[in-house]
Design a protein around this nucleic acid. Sequence first.
DNA 1: CGCCCCATGTAATAGGTTACATGATTAA
DNA 2: TTAATCATGTAACCTATTACATGGGGCG
Lengths: 177, 177
Amino acid sequence: MPKKRILPYIILGILDQNPGSTGKFITNQFKNEIGEFWKASHSQIYPELKKMVEDDWIKQTSDSNNEKEKYYHLTNLGKEKLNSWIDIPITALPVVEDLFSLKLFFIQDPHDPRISTLVNKQLNLLEEQLDHLNDREKMLFNTQEKRSKNYGHYLILERAISRLDNQIKWLKTIKQC
Amino acid sequence: MPKKRILPYIILGILDQNPGSTGKFITNQFKNEIGEFWKASHSQIYPELKKMVEDDWIKQTSDSNNEKEKYYHLTNLGKEKLNSWIDIPITALPVVEDLFSLKLFFIQDPHDPRISTLVNKQLNLLEEQLDHLNDREKMLFNTQEKRSKNYGHYLILERAISRLDNQIKWLKTIKQC
DNA sequence: CGCCCCATGTAATAGGTTACATGATTAA
DNA sequence: TTAATCATGTAACCTATTACATGGGGCG
């Protein structure tokens, strides 16, 4: 009856790319590129890791030097789960929650002064994020080798940038009306 | 502590544009344009309407011919709530849940055959939706008058189309690599 | 030795999804 | 009149968010 669970699969994917990650590292992944496509906070992640260990999707190791940090790795079962999840066909469109567009929707009069306020603030917000992503792109993928080494990572960063760019261009066309 | 409530504000916006809507009508709004920017199902909406009546954000009337259908209208308090909500500055970026991009992210090898399968299926999905939105645009906004009469509605439909178009173009560039 | 910071972890609570239920209207 | 359909409504359950809690490590 509840919503379909997908957080554990994303964690599997992160661990597949970064064996031995800590919970903190996984949390940070959601603050960077992955956050453009899925959100999760540390208070979801830690219990989920615990559950995944119980289910033998991942295993946990620790370092004698640092009792506190725990390192996670995929098990064979986890690898299977990840791969079969990736192969499940996607039938639903991406889901977007966009308060800005909704507010715009509710203002019916083309000359309502609130439109330009809304648009300008949104432009600032989006341009700031675009700068941030452009910086990351320059830092992470400045050579062809780096791009093909982490191709998936490169792709979704490009995707996020393209998406933002499209939003910004569209907003600028509104301003002129 | 829980997530910030925004569903009632969206319902206010819908009722502002369509006084006398039924729960069914509101539910359908979420299946069309609004659904591109926020999701809600009827099992959320009916209890919410009840609560909003109790809080005097909206009032309910009914038709003697049809006992079953209930019609909702904004109260003055509701109008105030809607307007002050629209004026609250937006500080967070739109939230996206996009399984396709995530799966792409987890495939690191540029030559992995699963990439083209994923991409082709996603292209079909997106193009189908684009056709649907283009049809709606032609039907709803084929004259300048219609566009300025429901400007907000027009804007977000354009936004949704532009966004889809951007996704599709980007996917096609991947295919060539 | 003691303080603060930070990674990890937990609790409380509301939000959202799926499935099921009801009762009036419509159509055969 | 009866069956089916459809709008409305409810229930159970899980997810996610925010806030709070803990305890080791590092640094003074």
